[in-house]
Design a protein around this nucleic acid. Structure first.
Lengths: 256, 256
DNA sequence: TATTGACCCTCACGTAGCGTCAGGGACTAT
DNA sequence: ATAGTCCCTGACGCTACGTGAGGGTCAATA
């Protein structure tokens, strides 16, 4: 097994030599062994540990904590990697959100339209986002099966005529909104309220329980986070997915 | 126009009051005006400037430079936003790369297969990686540059045209499944696998990350729990929502 | 009117995670 | 033996704030 010097490890991992010194000093990553010339030599295990360290660092975890985590008895590397994966993809979502925020800011600057102040910073402050998602889980995550059964049963209990009517309702709303989008009606304009009101009523019907404004806003987020929704709405009209989602949120806000 | 106090700005933007004090002190973000009580009051312009600051900060640009950029004569806010967008989506790609690195590490740990040391850190510390790759090329010449160029080109070519193709893919899948349903093919029959496999690949594309079987099964649940999905799929063919969802789950189970 | 409680201010020192010399050995190759 | 490139150990500096301390301000209440 080859042993690596500081510089080699540095090149491989992309960190500086000084950083390796630092990690050694604070006991976070000690070399496999040191020669009698006091040189640091690293092996395969150290490379893996360094990967762990850097992944944790990427998530903003302080070095002290990283050490504690890695040295905890019963530390499961596979499980840890899976958790990293999870958190990293959340970070990725945050970045996507940021890109959307920028798009909206650009649009609002170009069109001289106003933008709600709170929306200026969407995706920037991670904690608030997390808070909101926790709320979402509380709202939706807990009783999945029950909810599924409810809406499914609800739909099945409808007569053929009623089903058609509901689908017509949905279709109408989409057409109306697409029309608005084509006409350049801004996202969340009050003129869209009747359409969205009907949509919300329709959602309540399907769920078999009321759909409060916050839940409606949550739904808007859901739309943007799932490929099928995006694909379907984008084919109706380019930009429609975001337009719909944004409008739903503004509407929910006005109602709440 | 309403004026905002430090705490209000802090709440809106997600930064701390101390940070606002700091930005004032270093002249990065000064309040619109200060009362004779020495209170700081911010207006709309300051909120926009703060957004700019935070977006730049997100990219790791030091505060001093941010100030220089924003105060440069001829600073074009729109152009700046577009650049931010560009760089942020690169960051997002980096995160996707990180997730893939983790997936590969997991696979290599599970399968006891070896992983090239350099690949352990793909996605971490981007600039040095580029440097390293240049060094690699210089050292080994050969096939390395070709490989890099290939995957990069592939990624970038995934734009508007490809998107349409992917949507077509979705449409085809739906038609195929609806056909199966009409013919009485049972839920989750293996004959449906090619269609569902393509669907899963499509979902992965849309997410920008792999969609493991469990996630795919989760999506199946989501479909059934949401009125919009039910309505849409039911209009394709009565019973289609449940058929699709059930098939997805069986498929996921076979894969996992 | 007085008192609370939640704001606001200005110092000022502390911290994390390194960057960056300075000063001095070690190794390899000509 | 000399050069060039690596390695080491201090030690001080820097950024971007966190965290009190000590003390005014404001709006609503008692």
């Amino acid at each position: 097994m080859k042993t690596l010097t500081v510089k080699e490890v540095a090149r491989l991992s992309g960190v500086s030599v000084r950083t390796l010194h630092h990690y050694d000093q604070i006991g976070l990553l000690r070399p496999a062994f040191t020669g009698q010339n006091r040189y640091r030599y690293y092996g395969q295990d150290e490379l893996l540990r360094l990967q762990q360290i850097l992944l944790h660092r990427e998530l903003g975890i302080p070095l002290g904590e990283i050490g504690a985590i890695l040295d905890a008895p019963g530390f499961d590397r596979l499980e840890a990697l899976r958790q990293q994966r999870q958190r990293l993809s959340e970070e990725a979502k945050r970045y996507a959100q940021l890109v959307r925020t920028i798009d909206r800011t650009i649009a609002s600057l170009e069109g001289d339209r106003a933008m709600r102040n709170a929306d200026l910073y969407k995706g920037i402050s991670p904690d608030k986002q997390a808070e909101y998602e926790a709320w979402l889980v509380e709202q939706y995550g807990g009783d999945m099966p029950e909810r599924i059964a409810l809406s499914k049963h609800k739909y099945e209990s409808l007569s053929e005529a009623e089903r058609l009517e509901l689908n017509q309702e949905l279709h109408d709303m989409e057409q109306g909104l697409a029309e608005g989008l084509r006409r350049g009606v801004p996202m969340g304009s009050p003129s869209l309220d009747p359409l969205l009101g009907r949509h919300r009523a329709w959602v309540s019907q399907m769920w078999g329980r009321p759909c409060p404004p916050e839940a409606y806003a949550g739904l808007a987020d859901l739309y943007l986070s799932h490929p099928d929704f995006i694909a379907r709405y984008e084919t109706i009209e380019p930009g429609f997915a975001e337009y719909l989602s944004g409008s739903m949120k503004v509407y929910a806000n006005r109602q709440g």
